[in-house]
Design a protein around this nucleic acid. Structure first.
Length: 160
DNA sequence: GCCAACGTTGGC
DNA sequence: GCCAACGTTGGC
């Protein structure tokens, strides 16, 4: 099996936090509501077993709080067809749903890595998250960037 | 709560 | 197909 690709996925903790995923049935859930084509296309590239960092955005101290595994590859997003959902999309149909979800599995909480501190780590200069004006909610993490992040998390775990 | 950056919409 | 207007994201 090909070694897993890393990703980063943002969620506002007030809407859906890592704890929410941890306490979901089977610690698994669908990642719905993505309404940006670039982010959607990244989700469509995800493979089962890929690793995604869970990032809390639009909160007091944004940063990475843990990790997940991709449990199932992209499928149509049911919320796009649900008129009751805040993510309802009038241009999507059952035959032609514009939007996708992946199924994610809780893996672990990690030592908190704030956005502020992430900016000080060397080797992350090209990380999309840190690029000016970036608003992507789903983005790839290169092997090199993942290695830097895991090094940070492992070092924090050892020193605690 | 402010606002810069960005994506989308819709008139033309 | 251009682009102004508008809505959203998300750090601060």
């Amino acid at each position: 099996m090909k070694h897993p690709q890393h990703w980063l996925m943002k969620s506002e903790p007030d809407t859906y936090s890592l704890d929410d995923l941890k306490h979901a049935p089977h610690q698994s859930d669908i990642w719905d509501g993505v309404r940006n084509y670039q982010a959607r296309n990244f989700m469509r590239q995800m493979a089962v077993g890929d690793i995604a960092f869970f990032y809390h955005s639009n909160c007091k101290t944004p940063g990475i709080v843990g990790s997940m595994r991709i449990k199932a590859a992209a499928q149509p997003d049911p919320t796009a067809l649900d008129i009751e959902s805040p993510y309802f999309d009038s241009k999507s149909t059952l035959e032609n749903n514009r939007w996708s979800i992946v199924t994610v599995q809780y893996e672990q909480h990690l030592p908190f890595l704030s956005l502020q501190h992430m900016k000080t780590l060397t080797g992350l200069e090209d990380f999309p998250l840190l690029q000016r004006g970036n608003r992507l909610s789903v983005m790839p993490v290169s092997d090199k960037q993942a290695q830097i992040l895991w090094h940070y998390f492992n070092a924090q775990k050892e020193s605690s």
